[in-house]
């Protein structure tokens, strides 16, 4: 079994995709670091100070003013309302939610890439895991060996899991290394708040507690990994079902992008919460951002994702072991 997995890992590494992904991450992190730096400088110039409390206070006032403008959509208003209460809570407890530093940058990068960027990277590796064997004809060679079919698929699946872990690892490693050159490498022990619950327009703070940034990051990375695994499993299933890698990519892309769009407009379509793609922003529950549909919780979203993942895994194995290959 180990040999089989090793063999599959060898195939993945040979294709050099992992390195391409690392390069893409490095370039993007560089870009975002620069953008963030510019932003920090701009704010500092505008307010004439780098005191975070002044900056946060100004953000709160800006949000309040936006809330008072007419012609603001209901969803956006709710989102702002929640964020406003949260910012005020941070300010009242004298905690800076965005103290500069590589760990903070990393946290924001993970929070912003969990929905689209990370799944895309996973897709790049997983999409042709099985389908390329089918379209290239090598599947016959693979299946004529005296190994059970399910074992072959399992070895591929394990290789997929390992590469997902590797992608998350390189995301962490590169974002820390690159952003640290600008923002400094410290900040692992900064306190952050978690445990906010959103009820309609109100922010419930009964369960709020402090968390060191490293722990907070570990939690978020665990969640990001979970999301990446589910997306990877779904892609894996499509890869089993279809011979064309392009078709696999197309379908997954459409699903992911529609998820990003839907999250912004589904608040009145309640049953959309059972779609996997509106549940991808798991880190929002940790930071306390309003979910796209009322009543969604961390446990709910994780269950929905898990069910989709398990179903996809089941279908993959069923189809792969029963299918005629000729």
């Amino acid at each position: 079994m180990i040999n089989l997995v090793y063999n599959e890992m060898l195939k993945i590494v040979r294709k050099k995709r992992l390195f391409i992904i690392a390069a893409i991450i490095a370039v993007l992190v560089g870009l975002f670091t620069y953008a963030q730096l510019k932003h920090v400088q701009e704010v500092q110039k505008r307010l004439g100070t780098n005191d975070w409390r002044t900056q946060l206070q100004q953000q709160i006032i800006d949000t309040q003013n936006r809330l008072n403008s007419s012609g603001i959509s209901e969803e956006w208003r709710k989102f702002l309302q929640i964020r406003l209460q949260q910012q005020q809570y941070y300010l009242d407890h004298n905690i800076n939610p965005s103290a500069p530093g590589a760990p903070t940058f990393m946290r924001m990068f993970v929070e912003n890439s969990i929905e689209l960027f990370l799944p895309l990277m996973v897709m790049v590796v997983v999409a042709d895991l099985v389908s390329s064997e089918a379209s290239g004809g090598t599947i016959k060679l693979l299946l004529t060996r005296p190994v059970k079919r399910w074992k072959i698929l399992l070895s591929k699946y394990i290789a997929m899991l390992l590469s997902v872990s590797f992608i998350v690892l390189s995301l962490v490693f590169l974002s820390y290394l690159i952003s640290g050159t600008v923002f400094g490498y410290s900040g692992w022990n900064l306190p952050l708040l978690t445990g906010f619950a959103v009820h309609g327009e109100e922010l419930d703070t009964t369960n709020v507690h402090l968390l060191s940034q490293w722990k907070y990051l570990l939690i978020e990375l665990g969640l990001a990994w979970f999301v990446a695994i589910v997306v990877g499993t779904l892609t894996f299933m499509l890869s089993v079902l279809m011979r064309s890698t392009a078709a696999v990519m197309g379908i997954m892309l459409a699903a992911l992008i529609s998820g990003a769009i839907l999250s912004n407009m589904v608040s009145s379509w309640k049953s959309a919460k059972y779609l996997f793609m509106v549940n991808l922003r798991l880190t929002d529950y940790i930071s306390g951002t309003a979910p796209p549909i009322d009543g969604m919780t961390l446990g709910f979203s994780m269950s929905v994702l898990a069910i989709w993942g398990i179903a996809a895994l089941f279908i993959s194995f069923l189809v792969f072991t029963k299918r005629d290959v000729y």
């Binding site: 998350v168 722990k215 570990l218 939690i219 990375l221 665990g222 990994w225 979970f226 940790i286």
Partner: peptide, 13 residues
């Protein structure tokens, strides 16, 4: 490490 992170998450949240 990531599984450990998930464990911390379950315990914490």
């Amino acid at each position: 490490l990531w599984i450990f992170g998930l464990g911390v998450m379950v315990q914490d949240q």
